[in-house]
């Protein structure tokens, strides 16, 4: 079955074969959202499980993500015609004052791989910009990353900025980064804490499922 082939090649990080197979599937008249769900997302989910169980490692996940992006670029025009299957939109960024963005990038890549639509605001992002983007984009989540104890307090300001726009509770806030803890997340009124990129995806998926 072509979906299995796509998923298998994606797990191998084959950035040449995945888009070729996706094109082939579309040429055979298969529905783009099925190609996405049963081929690409199924492949990324399998990589996620193997990563959690330490059968594969971060570089393998990232190679798979590159193959996934190559596949999505083929699907995108078709999906745009039919409307993206919404698993939720996530606004993500590294908070103001902080320039570390590798962790945030990994979370963004893995969320995309799990079928979320990600709006990446980059690094050094002021609180108001998160709130503004969450409102404008109709985001289900806002993901905040900080790698410094001195920039962690900006996360609380983002929570406050969302509340002052009437988005408190409606837009879920997920926080993570080396100095951030579950206790800190609770203290500032964030909805979710993620220890790493894999747990960020799991928690976002759980919340999206309700």
């Amino acid at each position: 079955m072509i979906y299995d082939d796509i998923a298998r090649r994606l797990q191998e990080g084959d950035e040449d074969q995945v888009p070729r197979l996706v094109s082939q599937a579309l040429a055979h008249g298969l529905a783009p959202e099925e190609v996405l769900e049963k081929g690409l997302i199924a492949g990324m989910n399998a990589v996620g499980v193997k990563f959690r169980e330490r059968e594969v490692f971060l570089p393998d996940v990232l190679l798979a993500a590159k193959a996934m992006h190559a596949g999505i670029s083929v699907l995108k025009p078709k999906l745009a015609q039919e409307g993206l299957p919404a698993r939720g939109k996530v606004v993500i960024g590294t908070v103001q004052g902080d320039l570390h963005d590798i962790g945030k990038n990994l979370v963004a890549i893995m969320l995309k791989g799990a079928g979320f639509e990600v709006v990446d605001l980059g690094k050094d992002v002021p609180p108001e910009r998160f709130a503004e983007a969450a409102e404008k984009e109709g985001a289900a989540f806002v993901g905040l990353s900080a790698l410094l104890t001195t920039t962690m307090p900006v996360m609380a300001k983002v929570v406050e900025a969302l509340r002052s726009r009437g988005l408190g509770g409606k837009v879920k806030v997920m926080v993570g980064g080396a100095p951030v803890t579950q206790d800190y997340a609770r203290e500032i009124g964030a909805d979710l804490y993620a220890f790493d990129a894999a747990s960020a995806v799991e928690r976002a998926q759980a919340l999206a499922r309700g």
């Binding site: 570089p59 393998d60 190679l63 993500a65 590159k66 190559a70 990994l106």
Partner: peptide
């Protein structure tokens, strides 16, 4: 350019 693995390494 989506070269995540190389970027991360």
């Amino acid at each position: 350019t989506d070269d995540f693995a190389l970027g991360c390494l």
